[in-house]
């Protein structure tokens, strides 16, 4: 099971490129797609979900060109868009029944599946309430449920944890990890901790281009020995910010504790274990070296 993206480009009006010459092969597991706002993540998700056509390049799902035969992929696709709506007059069950029918699921099977999914996303108690009264997080969970209706082999989730409370976020992360065994899950987000918890592979995208694709371990090793922490007087912070790539700062009674990414050790700084966030910052600010070699 794989999805092969070859030299995909997407050009919008006004010669704006959403994606440019993007190539990537994705196998089973969770791929965390990271990138800053406007990097092209959602464009890629929409193309993979067959709701947008690329301007150039090809994508194959198990050897089948998805642009020529989109229904082969759609039959096994679960898609949670970044921005979607619901029919406010329908209840959760009715809405999921509607989408199950759109996906071609047998009605009796769909009902059983819907019951399971509503338990999974913790919406059993409100299943007969119109969606118009649902909060943003609850709607997001309806979105998650609909993406799983057809037991998808390819699950594409675009910024899925937006609007979820911390508990639901953890629950969703666990669900993704459990689901990833024998299917491809593509998780697009700019929240590094979501990826940290679930991804088996990470792709970082910036300005429509893939800047790296690696396992989390390899990404971490790419900044090993380059992450430093030290305490400075508050007044020096602006200068330090100019000089180093700052990962985080924390106010303390004796000044500001700074965490920075730098090849050379700053004065009186101690080397610390890198996090994925450090690696991500390193790659989006300076992407000249590929950890894969």
């Amino acid at each position: 099971m794989n999805i092969v993206i070859e030299n995909i480009s997407k050009r919008y009006k006004g010669n704006v490129w959403g994606l440019r010459d993007f190539t990537l092969t994705i196998g089973s597991g969770v791929l965390g797609l990271l990138g800053p706002n406007g990097a092209g993540k959602s464009t890629l998700m929409r193309i993979l979900a067959t709701v947008t056509r690329p301007s150039a390049g090809t994508i194959t799902w198990n050897g089948i060109n998805i642009e020529k035969s989109p229904n082969d992929l759609r039959a096994v696709l679960g898609y949670l868009p970044q921005d979607f709506g619901v029919y406010p007059n329908l209840t959760a069950i009715e809405f999921l029944e509607y989408l199950a029918a759109a996906k071609g699921l047998n009605h009796a099977i769909a009902r059983k599946r819907i019951d399971e999914l509503l338990q999974l996303v913790n919406l059993v108690d409100v299943r007969r309430r119109p969606l118009g009264g649902f909060s943003g997080g609850m709607r997001q969970r309806i979105g998650i449920a609909q993406a799983l209706l057809n037991d998808p082999q390819l699950l594409i989730v675009d910024e899925p944890t937006g609007g979820l409370d911390p508990e639901e976020r953890v629950r969703f992360r666990n669900l993704l990890s459990e689901l990833s065994g024998d299917r491809i899950v593509i998780l697009s987000t700019h929240i590094v901790s979501d990826v940290e918890a679930t991804a088996t592979h990470i792709a970082i995208i910036q300005k429509g281009k893939l800047i790296t694709h690696a396992t989390p371990e390899r990404l971490l090793s790419s900044v090993d020995g380059s992450v430093w922490e030290w305490v400075i007087p508050s007044a020096e912070l602006p200068l330090i910010k100019q000089r180093y790539l700052i990962s985080s700062t924390m106010r303390r009674t004796d000044g500001v504790r700074v965490r920075a990414i730098s090849k050379a050790a700053p004065d009186s700084a101690q080397a610390v274990q890198p996090t994925l966030e450090d690696a991500y910052l390193h790659w989006v600010s300076n992407h000249t070296v590929d950890p894969n070699g």
Binding site: E116, Q119, N122, F134, E167
Partner: peptide, 20 residues
């Protein structure tokens, strides 16, 4: 989207292991 009173969750803290 706001035609109905906001629905509040009653079992927000429940975590159920569910088989699909």
């Amino acid at each position: 989207s706001h035609m109905y009173p906001e629905v509040s969750e009653t079992n927000g803290t429940k975590t159920v292991a569910v088989h699909l």
